[in-house]
């Protein structure tokens, strides 16, 4: 279905992207010559050890960091323009729900800030709560929900204003394996239903392989892309697919890529 790659379908495009942080210990090359195209509807995972720049790259897309060289476009705009056009929803590692607002109140927050009408707000909150299977929890406060449910609420919050890009920065990193499996399944369902373009940062090889249409393997010092794997797995993925031969082969290639990138450090 991604045979026809037109400029319109290129959602995120990075050309020779560089980012150097000036720190007290001198300059640190966080990203070096990153080239990547993400097409509409892709589910792209970024995997690599700490310091490989995967989160930094995601933050560049979100215009939370600014590259010091190269070109980066989001929906054909600069990242800053895209941010102002509400091109993306961002999910952080921690749910970051405001404890003084109910779940519905938290999801409504970006809508209030963006000036949606009251009726529209209610309608959207109900819709995304349903989407993440939290209907009936709208009136609860965050502390009344489990960690997994809080993270689902934060995904609902990122979906509420209909951005067509979803940026997720290790959203399930703090959750246990069982909850993580369930949420992975749910994210895939969500992705299938909404057709969003997803950029997903993770530490976990199975998570990356299970979720992605494209896996970007990164390596540190300087942060760079060491391998890009287009997954041959079908879009429809039951959890059992993780026992298939193809799955294990891709996971193996990711592991090899990570090892190569690490060089002498392992």
């Amino acid at each position: 279905m991604k045979d026809e790659v037109t400029p319109m379908s290129r959602v995120i495009e990075a050309r020779d992207l560089n980012l150097v942080f000036q720190t007290a210990d001198g300059p640190v090359q966080a990203l070096k010559d990153v080239n990547l195209t993400i097409n509409r509807g892709d589910f792209v995972s970024f995997i690599g050890p700490s310091g490989c720049g995967k989160t930094t790259f995601l933050r560049c897309i979100a215009a939370l960091e600014h590259p010091t060289g190269g070109r980066l476009t989001v929906n054909g705009m600069t990242p800053d323009q895209a941010r102002m056009a509400r091109a993306y929803g961002y999910v952080f590692q921690a749910a970051g729900l405001y404890p003084w607002r109910t779940i519905a109140g938290n999801i409504r927050l970006p809508l209030e800030i963006m000036g949606f009408s009251k009726a529209d707000q209610e309608e959207r909150v109900a819709r995304v709560l349903d989407l993440v299977e939290l209907s009936g929890f709208g009136k609860k406060f965050p502390w009344q929900l489990s960690g997994g449910m809080q993270q689902r609420a934060s995904i609902a919050r990122a979906l509420a204003f209909d951005a067509d890009i979803l940026l997720m920065d290790e959203p399930f990193g703090a959750l246990d394996e069982i909850v993580r499996d369930r949420l992975n399944e749910e994210v895939l369902k969500l992705w299938a239903r909404t057709g969003k373009t997803v950029a997903f940062v993770t530490h976990s090889i199975p998570e990356a392989v299970y979720l992605s249409t494209k896996i970007v393997v990164m390596s540190p010092r300087p942060g760079r892309i060491s391998d890009v794997i287009d997954s041959p797995l079908p879009r429809e993925r039951p959890l059992e697919i993780r026992d298939s031969r193809e799955f294990i082969e891709i996971a193996h290639r990711v592991r090899e890529g990570l090892r190569a990138g690490h060089g002498d450090e392992l």
């Binding site: 929803g89 952080f92 970051g96 003084w100 970006p110 800030i113």
Partner: peptide, 27 residues
């Protein structure tokens, strides 16, 4: 920093930042 970043991704104004985030956080 994360809470402030979140507000930034929503392109919140300085006043909104104050009213919605900083003021309630300070209570």
């Amino acid at each position: 920093a994360m809470q402030l970043d979140l507000m930034r991704t929503w392109n919140a104004s300085g006043l909104q930042n104050f009213l919605v985030l900083r003021l309630p956080s300070s209570m």
